[in-house]
Write a protein that binds this DNA or RNA. Structure first.
Lengths: 217, 217
DNA sequence: CGTTCAATTATACAGGTGTATAACAGGATG
DNA sequence: CATCCTGTTATACACCTGTATAATTGAACG
């Protein structure tokens, strides 16, 4: 009876929850829903399977938390795109668009991750709310940038333009992410800026420099 | 030992395969991957679970067939959109766009169905090929319609324009499908036509009548 | 250095999954 | 009406799923 249990360290609730969320997101991105089992998630987070339900009420609860975390990160990432850019509204808009249309935002794994959550979003009202809030948050930011352009301050018109620009970005993000080999380097970004320039009827810098790359691991 | 087995009728391979594919697609659309179990698919197709593997080598094989069938139907649906329309290239283009941005094409279930396949598309090379061919087929049709416009015959430019227009459609299809309550009736279609009109720098009929509605069940 | 508490592990469980196989029966053929 | 083929059903199986619970142990505290 020389029980040789796995040795372990006690960690804070915050660390454990974050590790589990990251593990779940990674597995969902790479292998889809069927790969993100409780056991696989736990293994990747270096804990035993049972511990998951010590930090989350159920697997669905973890899924919900993971989705919320993902949406939160994507929102933060988007909003950060216009920081450190000149005050020129057109330049800010161009930067905002460009960031969404190159890695790491435009990425196959992220598209699939997002897509995999769609069914959960339908079933779970809380996740639906997060989905809606994230989309509207992104679009509202776009609308604000558009209204800052000269002569584009009408909210109703800006709303329609924001929806259209958002669609261009989403569509290109989707296609560039799922068919990366079908486009030349930078082509998606270029096409996106040109299209949005046409939609808004305003000149945009077609070449936007890669922003601050302070590689966070 | 009065075996009371379920009575049955023998059906053609074609009918059974189609019934199974429809059953699988319906379940995948409504409940996602986890709902489309072998038993649920069989029950909805009114056969016993074991019969599935008499018509398909495996569940993955059925999934593959279902995806191919779905993509085929969507392609046919798209190509039919311009039939019966006047010879005016702009009118044809408008009809093509409008059909994609209203039901039954723009539909939440269909978006989720499409999204659920993304992980399979990544893993299975055959499904990846179908995905790519479907996307390129749609886009090529768009490009042909664009090149038919007056003064838009340059293939390279038309390609970029087609990618942009495709993105607008895909993005709006996505958003209109997943957040139907966030848009007024016909708003998505209107925005799409306006945006594509701006991208192509050409006037488009902003109101496109609903085409032939020969309700097939 | 003992005590104590909760974080953590291990194990068990009921149910579901895709698959394999044997028994049955519909219906065409003679 | 009897025969035969094969489409079809039923059952069994090994494995995996999320969850519940008891046993263990890290580490903070007195």
């Amino acid at each position: 009876m020389v029980e040789d249990r796995r040795p372990y360290r006690r960690e804070s609730q915050e660390q454990r929850r974050e590790a589990l969320i990251n593990s779940a997101l990674h597995l969902l991105a790479q292998g889809g829903p069927q790969a993100a089992t409780v056991r696989a998630i736990a293994e990747r987070a270096n804990i035993s399977p049972g511990l998951i339900r010590h930090y989350f009420d159920s697997k669905d609860d973890l899924t919900r938390a993971a989705y919320a975390a993902l949406m939160d990160r994507m929102t933060v990432e988007s909003l950060a795109a216009t920081e450190g850019i000149s005050d020129d509204p057109a330049a800010q808009l161009a930067a905002f668009v460009a960031v969404s249309l190159r890695p790491p935002v435009m990425d196959g794994d992220r598209v699939r991750l997002w897509a995999g959550f769609l069914h959960h979003v339908r079933r779970d009202p809380r996740m639906h709310d997060v989905h809606k809030a994230t989309y509207l948050g992104y679009r509202d930011r776009l609308q604000a940038l558009i209204q800052a352009l000269p002569g584009r301050s009408d909210p109703a018109k800006a709303r329609a333009l924001a929806i259209a620009c958002n669609a261009v970005i989403d569509g290109l993000w989707l296609e560039g992410g799922t068919l990366p080999d079908s486009f030349a380097a930078g082509e998606i970004e270029q096409i996106g800026l040109t299209a949005i320039s046409a939609i808004l009827d305003i000149p945009l810098p077609t070449h936007t420099p890669t922003s601050n790359p302070p590689e966070v691991s």
